[in-house]
Write a protein that binds this DNA or RNA. Structure first.
Length: 209
DNA sequence: TGCCAGGCCCTCTTTAGGGCCTT
């Protein structure tokens, strides 16, 4: 099975919220899903080249001392680009991780061909009754076993992957059908909520025909 | 000391404003 049949679920820890304001990645974690099973993982701290704030140290548990020993983004992102291959990508609030992925890859002139899907946008449509749609809340809401500590990249990527698979299982049960395609999920995340029932009905018709 | 981004989505909307979500 080549990587085009895989989904890579990724998560960045960063120095802040915006790469356009000088923020950099300090850790990347990712898992590779094939047919609902985690078959590989990637985790690496990244030295951003400057000291991170006390807030980020407290938020992530990643310290300046840890980052002083970490390799540069140049080395890590080449490895991660090889890990991704041409797989499709999933992240929680994907627009955030996509901005940092694009910025860090641009620095080393690497590119990716996979498409992004967002577990948060899909979860807002599938679990409208959740109290909120933070990753930790959705993990608890769906009684998913917590993996490691929130706000570390690999643990968040693993929990996002388990949430993503739980969403696929929820949709399979709703339609009594096979696993939805990545393209279907990418379309679902853009559907207006008022159009969801029509969207689901159309998808079910296409599967049965 | 306080603030800094950007996309989505809802509503008391669309010539706008503000909350959510990510670090």
């Amino acid at each position: 099975m080549n990587s085009a049949n895989s989904v890579v679920v990724l998560d960045f820890e960063t120095t802040g919220l915006s790469p356009t304001q000088g923020d950099r990645a300090i850790e990347i974690g990712a898992v590779k899903l094939q047919q609902g099973v985690i078959v590989d993982h990637f985790q690496q701290l990244i030295n951003p080249g400057f000291r991170i704030t006390h807030f980020i140290e407290q938020y992530t548990g990643i310290t300046n001392a840890m980052l002083n020993e970490a390799p540069s983004s140049h080395i890590v992102m080449h490895d991660f680009a090889d890990f991704m291959g041409d797989a499709n990508l999933v992240a929680h609030n994907a627009s955030f991780d996509q901005r940092f992925l694009d910025a860090e890859l641009a620095r080393i002139h690497r590119h990716y061909s996979g498409r992004f899907a967002c577990s948060m946008l899909v979860a807002r449509r599938i679990y409208p009754d959740a109290s909120n749609h933070q990753l930790s809340t959705l993990v608890a809401h769906n009684r998913i076993e917590q993996q490691g500590d929130f706000h570390r990249a690999l643990a968040d990527a693993e929990m996002t992957a388990l949430l993503w698979q739980h969403i696929l299982d929820t949709l399979c049960q709703r339609w009594q059908c096979q696993a939805p395609s990545f393209a279907m999920m990418a379309a679902l995340q853009k559907q207006p909520k008022a159009n969801l029932e029509r969207f689901f009905a159309k998808y079910a018709d296409n599967q049965s025909s």
